[in-house]
Design a protein around this nucleic acid. Structure first.
Lengths: 121, 121
DNA sequence: TTCTTTGTTCCGTATTTACGAACTATTGAA
DNA sequence: TTCAATAGTTCGTAAATACGGAACAAAGAA
């Protein structure tokens, strides 16, 4: 199993961050990771906003977050520990992550987990 | 030609905004609209970051921005005038748009228009 | 009317995403 | 060791999205 790829913070792009967080499941996962003090393993998110996520899909979501530079994943024994890279990202794009997480929290509070899909035509 | 659809500000979602701005061309267009005082027509963006955009694609990009709630488009004679909905959005998601536009500006300054694609594996 | 400009829609192709099945890695127990 | 259990990844293919050329629509000018 090849080692996990994590982009250098200087290679992280705004577009990459926005794309990773433009998925309702991924932004919920990321918010969960940011909001918790201890690192989270993937299976903690097999259920997100009342919906079940297949584990292969979950794995892809974590990969997307990782490769966008949003989280750092580290194997510890049989499981994976995920932490956010907020501190690094804050230096590169001050205020960006905080604003997104805050907006997401606002929205969740207003209409809790409506299995939302991105607004489409 | 059916009238253009603009979502109510309360129907705007974080995911929708992030998705719309996760495309390098769209975020550049939106930054252009936000950054200019007077309203911009679509053709002002036939060239974005040194690359030519086909007009059908451009039309789709404007539609995406519109339906995400980021801009308001109004026909004036033969052309379309586009303005940002920043003021409304600021009420719903304080600081969000500003943080994204600022991050985009920072990134553009650091590495001007590298025909960037979203960071992928 | 006809021409020009601006933008939209249609539609075939290409890219991306989702998820089940099969697989790999690590730990612990027998 | 060997076996089983747990945690997560990869692969294959189907479904959904995006791109862009060609044709179309709307408005103004001549």
């Amino acid at each position: 199993m090849r080692p996990l790829f994590h982009p250098a913070v200087d290679d992280v792009t705004v577009e990459g961050i926005l794309h990773a967080l433009s998925d309702p499941v991924r932004v919920a996962i990321f918010a969960g990771i940011v909001g918790s003090q201890c690192s989270q393993n993937c299976s903690a998110f097999l259920k997100v906003s009342e919906q079940d996520i297949p584990k292969s899909t979950l794995s892809q979501h974590f990969k997307a977050l990782r490769e966008a530079g949003l989280i750092r994943s580290e194997r510890r024994g049989v499981e994976m520990h995920n932490i956010s890279r907020c501190a690094e990202l804050e230096k590169r794009f001050p205020g960006l992550i905080a604003a997104i997480v805050k907006a997401h929290a606002l929205q969740s509070r207003a209409s809790p987990s409506p299995k939302r899909k991105r607004t489409r035509e």
